[in-house]
Measured scan of single mutants.
Amino acid sequence: DYEVGESVTVMDGPFATLPATISEVNAEQQKLKVLVSIFGRETPVELTFGQVSKI
Rank of each mutant, 00 (worst) to 15 (best):
V8D: 01
S53Y: 07
Q51D: 05
V4K: 06
Y2I: 03
F49Q: 02
N26F: 13
A20Y: 02
V8Q: 01
L35V: 12
K33C: 10
P14I: 09
E46W: 15
G13T: 02
G5W: 04
V34P: 00
E46H: 07
E46L: 08
K54Q: 05
L35I: 14
E42S: 09
G5S: 03
I38L: 10
P19W: 12
I38N: 07
V10G: 00
E6D: 13
A27N: 13
Q29G: 09
L32G: 00
E28V: 11
K31C: 08
D1M: 15
V45T: 07
K54P: 06
G5H: 04
A16G: 05
M11I: 15
G5I: 01
K33R: 11
V4F: 04
D12H: 13
V25A: 03
A16T: 07
G40E: 05
P19C: 14
P19K: 15
I55E: 08
E46I: 10
L35P: 00
E46G: 04
Q30R: 14
E46M: 08
Y2G: 01
G40K: 03
T43C: 12
K54F: 05
P44Y: 15
K31L: 13
A16F: 05
I38Y: 13
K31Y: 09
L18Q: 08
K31P: 01
S37F: 13
F49D: 01
S37P: 05
G13N: 02
I38V: 11
V4P: 08
R41T: 11
V45H: 05
E46K: 04
P19E: 12
T43M: 12
P44E: 15
T48S: 13
S7K: 15
A27S: 12
Q51A: 06
M11T: 12
V10D: 00
T17D: 09
I55W: 10
S53E: 11
G13A: 02
A20R: 01
S37L: 14
E42L: 14
P44A: 15
V34E: 00
V4M: 05
E42C: 14
S37R: 14
F39Y: 10
A16I: 09
E46R: 05
I22E: 00
G13M: 02
L32V: 09
S53L: 09
V45N: 02
Y2D: 01
Y2H: 04
L35S: 06
L32D: 00
E42D: 11
T17H: 13
L35R: 08
T21V: 14
L32R: 00
E42W: 13
D1A: 13
T43A: 08
L18R: 09
S53H: 10
G13D: 02
K54M: 05
V4T: 05
L47A: 03
Q29L: 12
T48H: 11
A27H: 14
E3V: 14
E28C: 09
F49R: 03
I38T: 06
T21E: 06
V4H: 04
T21F: 08
R41D: 07
K31E: 05
E6G: 08
V52E: 00
S7E: 13
E3M: 13
S23M: 15
V10M: 05
A27G: 09
V8P: 00
G40D: 07
T43I: 15
E24W: 13
K31F: 08
T48Q: 09
A20Q: 01
V10P: 02
V10Y: 01
L47Q: 01
